[in-house]
Design a protein around this nucleic acid. Structure first.
Lengths: 184, 184
DNA sequence: GTCTATAATTTGATAGAC
DNA sequence: GTCTATCAAATTATAGAC
C-alpha cells in the first residue's frame, strides 16, 4: 500500500516524531520540511493534505506495531507480555515520546474522521492480540484483562512522560506482569 | 488565589471543554470568546496570554479534583476506590472528554514550562493520595500500585474515548477494583 | 521532485475608544 | 470590561517554473 520513496519515509519519520512530542495540531508542514531539508510545498507533493499525512502516520505506525506483535506469538505467556511491555518502554525511553495513537486519540475531536477510525483500529488490534494471547495460555479470552493491560501501559507512558519520571512506567510494567502472573 | 469574576469562570469552563476535546493547541481565543459571547480581545483582559490561560486551567482543574479527593478520605478502602474511579468515569461519560492533564501531558513538549510543572503536580497529587489510602488500609504505602491505578484509569479514558466504547473503561474500572481487593 | 511565489485563513496579541 | 480595528506571524494549500 505505502510507496517506498525515501523522502516520503523521511517525512513520515520526522512528522511522527513531532506529533508524538507535541501533538498533531502542533506539527506543521514547514517544521517537518525543515527537518528533512526540503520546502513545505514539496511536502505537499508526497502528502497533498495534512489529513492524508496524518492517516499515513497512523497506518504506518499500526503496521509496524503489528509486525512486532506477530513475532511474539511463538513465545510463552510471560515472555510474550514482557516483550509486549518492551514495545511501550521503547516508545517512552528510546523514542522519548508517547504513543502516536494515544495523542491522536486524545485530540480526536479536532481530527478528521479517517484518522479517528485508524486510531481506533490500532487499539482494537492491541486488544485482540492480548485476548488471543490470554485465550491460548489462560484458557479464556478475557477482554477486560486485555483492556486493563493496554490502558495501564498507554496511561503509564503519558503519566511517566509528563512527570519526567521513568520509574512510574517501570512500576506499572512490573504491576502488569504480576497481575497476569496471578491469573496464570 | 483565583478571582471569582463570573466571566473569568465562564471562559475557564469553555476553554477547558475545548482543550479536553481537541487539545491545548487547538483551543483558540476566538473560539472560546465565541463560546461565552464576547470578543477575543476581551478574553485577553482576563488572561493576558494563552500560556496564562493554560496555567489557570490546570491549576483550577487540580484544585477541583483535590477537593473531591479530600472528601473521600473518610471512606473505607473499596468505597473510596469506587468513588475515585467515579471521578474518572464522570470525566469520560458526563463531560464526554478526556482528563485535562492527560492531554496537557501528551502535548507537553509544545507547552510552556509552567504548564508542564502544574501538570506534573496533578499526577503527583493523585499518586500521593492513593499511596496514603493504601498506607492507611493496607498497612504499606505501595507507590507502584498507586502508579498502576492512575495509569490504568488515565489510559482507559483515552482508549475508551478514542474507540467510542464505554465498555472498555468499565472493564478497566472493574479490573482496578479487583486488583486492589486482591491486595486487601 | 523540488523550487519560488503567493493566496487565503487563522492565530495570539496590542492600542485605544467607550 | 468589552468593544473595534489592526498587526505580525504562522498555517494549509495551490500554481507554475525548473
Amino acid at each position: 500500500m505505502s510507496k517506498k520513496s525515501p523522502m516520503r519515509e523521511k517525512i513520515l519519520q520526522a512528522a511522527e516524531k513531532r506529533v508524538r512530542a507535541a501533538g498533531f495540531a502542533e506539527m506543521s508542514f514547514r517544521d517537518v520540511a525543515s527537518d528533512v531539508g526540503i520546502k513545505s510545498a514539496s511536502v505537499h507533493y508526497h502528502f497533498p493534505t495534512k489529513a492524508e499525512l496524518g492517516e499515513a502516520l497512523v497506518e504506518e505506525y499500526t503496521t509496524r506495531f503489528n509486525a512486532f506483535l506477530v513475532q511474539l506469538d511463538t513465545e510463552a505467556l510471560l515472555p510474550a507480555i514482557r516483550s509486549y511491555i518492551a514495545l511501550y518502554a521503547k516508545a517512552l525511553i528510546l523514542d522519548e515520546a508517547i504513543c502516536l495513537c494515544a495523542i491522536m486519540g486524545a485530540e480526536a475531536i479536532g481530527l478528521p474522521r479517517e484518522i479517528n477510525e485508524k486510531t481506533r483500529t490500532f487499539f482494537e488490534m492491541n486488544l485482540v492480540w492480548l485476548e488471543n494471547l490470554f485465550g491460548k495460555h489462560l484458557g479464556a479470552s478475557n477482554r477486560p484483562l486485555a483492556a486493563m493491560v493496554v490502558s495501564a501501559l498507554e496511561g503509564a507512558i503519558i503519566v511517566s512522560s509528563a512527570s519526567k519520571d521513568r520509574k512510574i512506567f517501570d512500576d506499572v510494567a512490573e504491576e502488569v506482569i504480576q497481575l497476569i502472573a496471578s491469573r496464570a
